Simulated scan of single mutants.
Amino acid sequence: MLRAGARHPDAADDDSPPVASTSGQAAAAAPDLPQLYATLNEYLLLEHKFQPRLCLPADCENGEVTVGARDGAAHVLRCLKVWFDLPASVLIHAINLFDRFLTKMKVRPCHVPCITVSCMNIAIDEHADLTRQPRNVLVEELVSVSQSACTAGDVARMSRVIVDKLGLVKGCHSVTALDWLRLLRTLVVCAAEELNIDAPLCQESELVNLLEIVVCDAVCANARTSELALVLIYHQLEQQLVEWSRREGNPVPEAAYLLYDYAAQLQAHCHMSDASLVSCRNRVRVVISRYEGRCAATHRQPLVWRLSERTLKVLRPTDRLTSLLPTIEEQHLADASPPRKRSGSEGSDSVDMSDWPRSPILPVYCDH
């Protein structure tokens, strides 16, 4: 639990604004630097408690959960977050719960869908308790949208198991990579304001989007949350320096390089070794480059509609549909066939209609 000297950045308080605003405007609200450093020290003390240590096989061995199953569960959580328009803190907290539970418990692959929905269920409950707002997503809706083949009762029971195994206590909220990111970004923005540097970092939403991409990949699952946040800060500082260097007639301000020194001071304060930070940085770059390459791909796999036999029986046949009609040569037919004399009454049953499509009657589409 956070002690009296620090506060959780998402905590709602009617008396004073939060330390790190969820809307990314912490710098504009003139945050209290001593309070920020007190929160930083508290996060350092609690970091090991919320740190997952996954050791999953790449291939299925003895019915164990694989790395691919973990990434699949993370992407299901992100789909639920987008579907119900949930905040990023719920997604990152749910992924953190999932990784920590797999760290402590050996589960079967058939239980992964239920565990995934249960982690999202717990994260939604904690977010509602943290922000003091009513919960707006029902457990039945989570089960229905996720298609996890479990019931709301299964999710409720699994949620109690996860809470028990992880030792979760109501009112004691986890410190995730998102909390670290918001805190470190606020500190860097405050340092940039003291150095009179404009736009040292991008909007918080862009950093949060990058963090969502990174935490959904098992490559970065075991990285320290503080290192993960600081690596993303470094990444955005590099991007900003590249943009400044491309401007003609407007050199990069010398004070901008001082932000790297300030980030290095944060690294030393958080006891991050250079080797560990470089390793985390390489993993983050691999994940981001893989994601950007996937988004820039020009060749997409075409959609394939798979229909069941029951659906095929209901569909109307389309093999006789044509968009072009043959030209009727009226003059040629008139000359070749002699006029037919009608003798008596002749019904429609006597007319040869063997080439006419039987039931059902199909429409014929023309170009004009």
Rank of each mutant, 00 (worst) to 15 (best):
R3L: 13
D10E: 14
A11M: 14
D13I: 04
D14L: 14
P17K: 03
P17D: 09
A27S: 15
D32R: 05
L33I: 14
T39M: 08
L40C: 07
L40N: 09
N41P: 00
Y43F: 15
L45H: 12
H48P: 00
F50A: 03
Q51I: 01
R53F: 04
L54D: 04
H75W: 07
V76K: 12
C79L: 15
W83Y: 15
D85R: 15
L86W: 05
V90C: 10
I92Y: 13
A94G: 04
N96V: 01
L97Y: 06
D99W: 01
R100V: 02
R100A: 01
T103L: 06
K104P: 02
M105P: 00
K106F: 02
K106T: 08
V107D: 06
C110Q: 13
V112W: 06
V117K: 05
S118H: 06
C119T: 11
C119A: 11
N121Q: 06
A123Y: 04
E126G: 01
H127S: 05
A128T: 10
R135G: 08
R135F: 02
N136P: 02
N136Y: 14
V137A: 07
V137E: 11
L138F: 13
S148Y: 01
R157K: 09
R160T: 04
I162L: 05
S174N: 10
V175W: 01
V175D: 01
L178F: 00
L181G: 02
R182A: 01
R185I: 03
A192W: 15
D198V: 00
Q203K: 15
S205V: 07
L207M: 14
V208C: 05
V208N: 03
L210P: 00
L211W: 00
V214S: 04
V215E: 14
D217K: 09
V219Y: 06
A221P: 08
A223V: 07
S226E: 12
E227T: 10
L228C: 03
A229F: 10
V231H: 07
H235P: 00
Q239T: 08
V242M: 07
W244K: 15
P251D: 04
V252S: 03
A255V: 03
A256Q: 08
Y260D: 11
D261T: 13
A264S: 10
Q265C: 05
L266K: 10
L266I: 10
L266W: 13
S273W: 03
D274V: 08
D274G: 00
S276P: 00
S276R: 12
V278M: 09
C280I: 10
R281F: 05
N282Q: 05
V284Q: 02
V284S: 08
R285H: 13
V286A: 09
V287G: 03
S289W: 04
A296W: 08
H299A: 07
Q301S: 13
Q301V: 13
L303H: 13
L307D: 12
S308R: 12
E309M: 08
T322A: 11
T322V: 11
S323Y: 04
L324V: 14
L325P: 00
P326T: 05
L333M: 10
R342H: 12
G344R: 09
G344H: 11
S345T: 06
G347F: 07
S348K: 02
S348M: 09
V351F: 15
S354V: 08
S354H: 06
I361R: 14
V364Y: 12
V364S: 10
C366A: 05
D367L: 13
D367K: 15
